[in-house]
Amino acid sequence: MEKATVHIALFAALIAALGLIPKLMLTSGVPITAQSMGIMMAGTILGAKRGAAAVALFVALTLAGLPLLSGGRGGLGVLAGPSVGFVVGFPIAAWATGWIMERLHALPVSIAAGVAAMIGGIVILYIPGVAGMALMLDKSWSQAAMLITPFLPGDLIKAVITAILTQAIFAARPASVFSRSGSSL
């Protein structure tokens, strides 16, 4: 119980620290952030339940008033803006990523993490993300979806980096990758 709680708390802190790393601008003008990889890694490393809890904790404290989102954003204003769907979707995405990661235990870590990150971190995340945007900007789902398509290439890159990082972490600390080690937290 202590181990689980501590891992959840510290992973949430890590996601916050990743917000400090400056965005990388792709040639298409679309940024990718290290923090969004942290969200996916919560799933690939801690698994579905603990990963989702870590990301939920991070989101909760951001909404409570800490400027933890990339770019130093935070507070309840985040919920009232167009990216509300993404913020709310982060814990869901982490859960989905972790769930898929756990199911794919027969595959090598890098492949499992890549698949999990792509489905959980992109497909699943974009459902609430697009819905939120559609609501806030008063557009239809397909119109909102159009607005986010430029971000897809960046997200694919993020999923690949997540896979590589998860593999490296697993090689260094196999017991700490709880989605794999099956050791009880």
């Binding site: 290290a34 490393i45 972490i169």
Partner: peptide, 25 residues
């Protein structure tokens, strides 16, 4: 070095988590 540092940062976090959990217990 913005991508290179994610790995050691994550590793440090996992190691700290083990130590802190012990201290807590």
């Amino acid at each position: 070095g913005r991508w290179a540092i994610i790995f050691p940062l994550a590793l440090g976090m996992l190691d700290d988590a083990d130590t802190v959990a012990e201290a807590l217990r």
